[in-house]
Design a protein around this nucleic acid. Structure first.
Lengths: 117, 117
DNA sequence: TCTCTAATTTGACACCCATCTATGCAGCAG
DNA sequence: CTGCTGCATAGATGGGTGTCAAATTAGAGA
């Protein structure tokens, strides 16, 4: 369900990823490998209050509601966003830890923290 | 051919990406949305001398040489790696700028540089 | 209860993708 | 030139994916 911390922070360039790590990380990148999902994530993350209702997210696209719902589900299953229903509307917000982990993975080999013990 | 600097550094969370930006960025993430390519990139990036021969890259996988060649082509077309033939062997190395741009995109809204003027 | 709206789920379809085998091309050594 | 090796390309195939229309669930209100 969640991508635990074993594939956490060591940058891609500092040491070779093993097969298990890449099999955990690849779905994260796959979730972002679509223009609509990339924009959805950005819309949610930059939305006032840090969360957005689906009704806000459907408007900017020339896509049907089911399609947006599908992309939101993909992002959620990847762990990039979370959601909650409040009355009539469903709200989505991002999981900043996952984004930070991906950023660190692609980033330069800054201050390589070897795994303790 | 290249992903120019117009989708450079503004983090995903600081402002909504527009459609054009996401259509440039999505192929980058798509190139990383595969365990084999993720591992290939890491193997190349962390290899001694900053470059690796295809012969080094084929060994760690239970895949045929054409498949590895295909994945390298995908990474190259995305602009993540470059290559050169030297005699019998072909060497690959990463394009650190593209990785840095992706890292910045996913990273926190550090030192948001508003557009000048 | 009935109805309206918000959002998701289902099923279908066209398209894309990872992998393989077979083939082709480039360089080195006789 | 001939043969061998490293690597890429071509074609085929099984599985995955983005999209939509139609149906379904969940909540608000009369």
């Amino acid at each position: 369900m969640d991508v635990s911390a074993d594939a956490c922070c060591a940058p891609l360039v500092s040491q070779p990823l093993n097969e298990a790590e890449t099999m955990e990380l690849a779905p994260l990148f796959k979730a972002l490998a679509d223009p609509v999902r990339l924009r959805l994530l950005s819309l949610i993350a930059s939305h006032e209050g840090g969360e957005a209702c689906v009704c806000d997210l459907t408007v900017p696209f020339d896509l049907t509601a089911p399609t947006i719902s599908h992309h939101l589900k993909v992002l959620k299953q990847a762990g990039l966003i979370e959601s909650e229903r409040r009355g009539t509307w469903v709200y989505y917000w991002i999981n900043p830890e996952v984004l930070a982990r991906m950023s660190a993975l692609l980033g330069p080999a800054t201050a390589l923290t070897g795994s303790p013990a």
